[in-house]
């Protein structure tokens, strides 16, 4: 489960509570637990081996608690390592916008990129939740135009 999925699940549970007092109490419960886990995680973060920083689940937790030690570009790199075929074309840190370009041509028919898009979004939500938009720039598909084979003279 990613942090985003957890958040959505928590929201669903909160939405079942109608009474204002109940809802505040439930939020306080989540807050207290996050506080506790976050405090422990802050200690653990200093002891983590470097490879853990690229792990989807570990990094998701660290990022959620603002404990991930690496900058945005590096974290985007971790995300892209999990979906081969995409590289950063442009990153606007100020506006939180990222443009990715395809590095291999694939089949040229665009198949697979729809699934890629969802996976990229999921990974970016995990590693770089400060991004607000991502653009997948596809390579133009080039068609080879050749001469017709010369007809055989009978």
């Amino acid at each position: 489960m990613t942090a985003e999925e957890l958040g959505v699940r928590v929201q669903q549970v909160l939405d079942q509570l109608d009474d204002a007092g109940q809802r505040e109490a439930a939020e306080e419960l989540v807050r207290t637990l996050m506080d506790f886990y976050g405090a422990g995680l802050a200690r653990a973060a200093e002891l983590l081996p470097a490879e853990a920083l690229g792990d989807e689940l570990v990094a998701g937790l660290l990022v959620l608690h603002d404990l991930h030690p690496q900058d945005l570009g590096t974290r985007i790199g971790h995300a892209l390592a999990a979906v081969p075929g995409w590289a950063v074309q442009r990153l606007d840190v100020e506006r939180g916008e990222l443009t990715l370009r395809q590095t291999d041509e694939g089949g040229g028919c665009g198949c697979g990129s729809a699934q890629d898009g969802e996976r990229v979004e999921q990974l970016l939500a995990c590693f770089a939740p400060e991004l607000t938009a991502v653009e997948l720039a596809k390579q133009p598909t080039l068609l080879q135009i050749g001469t017709r084979p010369v007809a055989e003279v009978r």
């Binding site: 989540v30 807050r31 938009a133």
Partner: peptide, 15 residues
């Protein structure tokens, strides 16, 4: 694609 992340936003608010 706009990245909204309502779940993450909720958890961050509760932090």
């Amino acid at each position: 694609r706009q990245l909204t992340g309502p779940g993450t936003a909720l958890l961050r608010r509760l932090r």
